[in-house]
């Protein structure tokens, strides 16, 4: 086992992994636990074997762990991973609406309205630069499904983005 290696991986990926886990479950605590468990598991793995697909491995293990904890905590009893469709309902609070009118809407704010599955695939692709194939392996969706989701969600976001920014511009 190679402590230096673990430390390097930790330094390099802890932040992105934690961000991903947090966006997945919305709880810093659960995210921290899941990431910790991921790295503890990594300590038991063979560096040589795992190095070539390290990122995919980290995301897959971390993701499974998040859903495991959620299930155990009974925060999500009989539901499947993706039944939490629109978890970010706070998007329509008065504050956020005011903010929408105020500033130029960023793509990120629009993303919060997306169903969880779509948001996750977008993040894996554009925040973590994973390939369709890697995303498919992490999320257990098929490659063509990933491609389909991304194609449509990008189109949707583009439309929303132009619409909101035009309205915002019109108001100002």
């Amino acid at each position: 086992m190679n402590q230096d290696w673990i430390k390097q991986v930790l330094d390099e990926h802890e932040g992105t992994l934690l961000r991903y886990a947090y966006k997945l479950c919305g709880s810093v605590e659960i995210a921290q636990d899941a990431v910790q468990d991921t790295f503890l598991k990594l300590c038991k793995e063979d560096q040589k074997k795992i190095e070539s697909y390290l990122l995919k491995w980290l995301f897959t293990v971390c993701r499974n762990r998040v859903f495991e904890i959620l299930r155990k905590d009974k925060k999500m009893t009989a539901l499947t991973d993706y039944d939490l469709e629109t978890k970010h309902s706070e998007i329509s609070t008065p504050d956020s609406v005011a903010q929408l009118a105020d500033d130029k809407v960023t793509i990120r704010t629009l993303m919060q309205q997306l169903p969880a599955k779509e948001e996750e695939v977008l993040r894996l692709k554009f925040q973590n630069n994973l390939s369709y194939k890697e995303i498919s392996e992490i999320t257990q969706l098929s490659v063509s499904n990933v491609g389909f989701i991304l194609h449509n969600v990008i189109k949707k976001l583009r439309g929303e983005f132009h619409k909101t920014n035009e309205t915002a511009g019109g108001l100002a």
Binding site: L10, E14, G15, T16, L18, R19, Y22, V28, A31, Q32, V35, Q36, T106, I107, R108, L122, R123, F126, Q127, N129, I154, L157
Partner: peptide, 13 residues
Amino acid sequence: LSDELQQEEILEL
């Protein structure tokens, strides 16, 4: 989109 997402705050253990 990618630029924006990568600027998103990173958490630490």
